[in-house]
Design a protein around this nucleic acid. Structure first.
Lengths: 151, 151
DNA sequence: GTACAACTTCAAGTTAACTTGAGGTCAAGG
DNA sequence: CCTTGACCTCAAGTTAACTTGAAGTTGTAC
């Protein structure tokens, strides 16, 4: 497959595919003249990348999870970490959704006078919802097995 | 209150507060010499901003929702839109979480051989989870009331 | 009354994930 | 043979949301 074929099948622009290759996310199997040639399994790889992006992994995180190997063999612990992270996000989002929905129908003269809305505000302000706890649990869980590369 | 007081109470660095002021998100009530003076309700305002950020609004969106007025009076329809959006995100995230969790315990030799994981991959690849539908429903619902500013 | 920590402005830097553009190469059709 | 269009590289631009730095000012404690 040439790059436009991959582009068509994956829905990603060629520029993104080149960018991904440069980042080490995908690899072309060779060249025909100047042109990259991709094997079919790049599509599976791109699907994995899309999966990662869908759960808000950075490209760098994805590079790490997907080794350079064909078969990724993703760390199962990492998967659980990410599932936990998603759980926390789901909880926040659920709280937010309920709060927003209530605020929308609340008959308080202004949102500011609605106690539920104010409670939500308090939550947001306290950072409980700020979604900046991206990798805290990951770090925590990860640190239990300690540094595998140092003495 | 001076800026460091607001900073302490809000948890935001002074640079961010200045940045927010420049963006029109908050306002200082005046100056003492060079220094900004903020009124107490800037904290409420910052809480609203945090709330918005917590549900992934951009600062520009937030500026629009919070008029320049003291009492925001947020568009209730907009709140419902955002609640809907959150619903969709929650569904995606739930699907992802379940998928990840299964993949973590799945006894298939490689994730690639696990049908559930592959199904998840399909979902991600098809863009069903790609979270790029940020404002589609908003646009849709919004377009029902049509352009209020054009003839 | 002077030192200095804390404020100020304004410009420029940062990060992620791409996109765009300029300038060049090459295979295939006419 | 020659044109054309799809590909190539590499550098630079883009956006969001801030942060950092340089250079200047000032309220306050001694």
């Amino acid at each position: 497959m040439d790059i436009s074929e991959v582009s068509k099948r994956s829905g990603l622009p060629a520029s993104t595919l080149r960018f991904y290759e440069e980042k080490g996310l995908i690899r072309s199997v060779g060249r025909q003249g100047l042109r990259r040639v991709f094997s079919g399994n790049v599509l599976e790889r791109l699907a994995l990348i899309a999966l990662g992006r869908a759960v808000d992994f950075s490209l760098d995180e994805i590079v790490q999870m997907l080794g350079s190997e064909g078969t990724p063999s993703i760390d199962r612990e990492l998967l659980l970490d990410k599932a936990d992270e998603l759980d926390r996000r789901i909880q926040k989002f659920t709280a937010m959704r309920d709060g927003l929905r209530h605020a929308a129908v609340c008959d308080a003269p202004s949102h500011m006078e609605c106690p539920k809305f104010r409670r939500l505000l308090g939550l947001a302000a306290s950072g409980a919802l700020s979604s900046d706890d991206r990798m805290k649990a990951t770090q925590k869980r990860r640190s239990k097995k300690a540094a595998p590369l140092s003495p």
